[in-house]
């Protein structure tokens, strides 16, 4: 049963990720990115990380994917649908990916012996205690980063006034 769940979620995640990377139409890429992020949320659920699952759905699928869709629709022209979307360096990029895979392969197969021992526990209450106790300082730092990003986004997207 868990194998069926894992392989179907993997198929959804990987096929939609390939679509994100390879499709010509950026709008289709953005829609498939939403599907891929939802699949990753499913992977989190299969790993027993319930709070991570819900925040992935809320922040990534509900926030980031929608924001990307808005920007894609605001910044494109219909003539771009016929343009090539992959640059000239795709062969070099493929080589870089192959080399990176060779580096990671050893660790993947070394880690293969670990198996599940316990059934998953709900994590939300413990996460709240951790974030407001031991991890309070990084938590506040992240809220500072979010405020800075908010202000930065407003500053960058403000229409520039011409000097008289």
């Amino acid at each position: 049963m868990s194998a069926l769940v894992f392989y179907s979620l993997s198929a959804v995640v990987l096929i939609s990720a390939l679509g994100v990377v390879l499709l010509k139409n950026t709008l289709h890429s953005a829609l498939l990115l939403g599907l891929c992020l939802a699949g990753v949320a499913g992977v989190f659920a299969s790993l027993g990380a319930d709070f991570l699952f819900s925040s992935q759905l809320l922040i990534y699928v509900g926030g980031i994917a929608v924001l990307l869709l808005f920007v894609v629709m605001l910044s494109g022209r219909s003539s771009e649908l016929k343009l090539r979307q992959v640059n000239d360096q795709w062969l070099a990029a493929l080589l870089i990916c192959a080399v990176t895979f060779l580096g990671m392969r050893r660790y993947i197969f070394e880690a293969g012996t670990a198996v599940l021992t316990a059934s998953p526990q709900p994590t939300t209450a413990a996460l709240g205690k951790l974030l407001l106790g031991e991890y309070a300082v990084p938590f506040e730092a992240v809220s500072l980063i979010l405020i800075a990003a908010l202000v930065g986004a407003v500053v960058f997207s403000k229409a520039r006034e011409r000097k008289p």
Partner: peptide
């Protein structure tokens, strides 16, 4: 499902993302 399955999935997703970040115009 072992840890290696999840690591392989994440490695594949990472490589696809790396390829996209390097090649998209």
């Amino acid at each position: 499902m072992t840890l290696a399955h999840y690591l392989a999935l994440s490695a594949a997703l990472f490589l696809i993302g790396l390829f996209g970040a390097l090649t998209r115009r």
